[in-house]
Amino acid sequence: MRKNAQHLQYLVQGAMIAAIYTVLTLLAAMANLAYGPVQFRFSEALTLLPVFTPAAIPGLAVGCLLSNIWSGYGAVDMIFGTMATLLAAIATRQLRNVRVKNIPFLAPLPPVLFNAVVIGLEIAVFSPKGLSWAGFWSAALTVGAGELVICFFLGLPLVAALQKIGEKRKIFLS
């Protein structure tokens, strides 16, 4: 019975994260901030949730997949954007115990790096000008900069707040 409850909790956590990620991405899309070379997806703050639970890994991947249905890059973004998010979530989970003053300071790096490289390449490949190193570096830098701002300035405070709530209520995830 206990194993079924844990499995259900894992599924519910993953589904909730996917739903919240999708809604936040669509809100950013309404402000024209979710797709393209300049991205400030508020949902990317959630990419640090694998620090707390492994259920965030599939949750983030499904949320990204659903969000990218509305991307101008279509199926390509659904595949490669989701792959970048999945790989970043796995790497974030691996870095969860690397902490400075109990803050997982390296956790934002995988989403920044994976998105900069994968989405930067995706944008450069499908650019009307065609693939070029200048196009790749330009897209990688703008996507990476947006991701950096969101992950470090929204994601880390989110993690700190969730940790504080968890400590106060004696909730321990990992």
Rank of each mutant, 00 (worst) to 15 (best):
M16T: 15
A18E: 09
A18C: 08
A18W: 05
A18D: 12
A18T: 04
A18I: 03
A19T: 12
A19N: 08
I20K: 04
I20L: 14
I20F: 14
Y21I: 01
Y21E: 00
Y21V: 04
Y21W: 14
T22P: 09
V23M: 06
V23R: 03
L24M: 12
T25S: 07
T25H: 04
T25L: 02
T25N: 06
L26Q: 08
L27R: 01
A28C: 13
A28Q: 06
A29G: 14
A29V: 02
A31W: 10
A31N: 10
N32R: 15
N32E: 11
L33S: 09
L33K: 05
A34G: 07
Y35F: 15
Y35N: 01
Y35S: 01
G36Q: 08
P37V: 03
V38Y: 13
V38K: 04
V38H: 07
V38F: 14
Q39T: 06
Q39P: 15
Q39S: 08
F40K: 05
F40I: 03
R41N: 12
F42R: 00
F42M: 08
S43F: 11
S43L: 11
E44Q: 06
A45K: 00
L46F: 09
L46M: 11
T47F: 07
L48V: 02
L48D: 10
L49I: 06
L49H: 00
P50R: 00
P50Q: 04
P50I: 10
V51P: 11
V51R: 00
V51H: 03
V51A: 00
F52P: 00
F52I: 06
T53R: 06
T53S: 15
T53D: 13
P54M: 12
P54T: 11
P54F: 09
A55Y: 06
A56Y: 07
A56G: 07
I57Q: 08
P58A: 06
P58H: 07
G59F: 03
L60V: 06
A61V: 05
A61T: 10
A61N: 10
A61M: 14
A61W: 09
V62I: 15
V62C: 11
C64I: 04
L65T: 13
L66V: 14
L66Q: 04
N68Y: 11
N68P: 15
I69M: 15
I69T: 15
I69D: 13
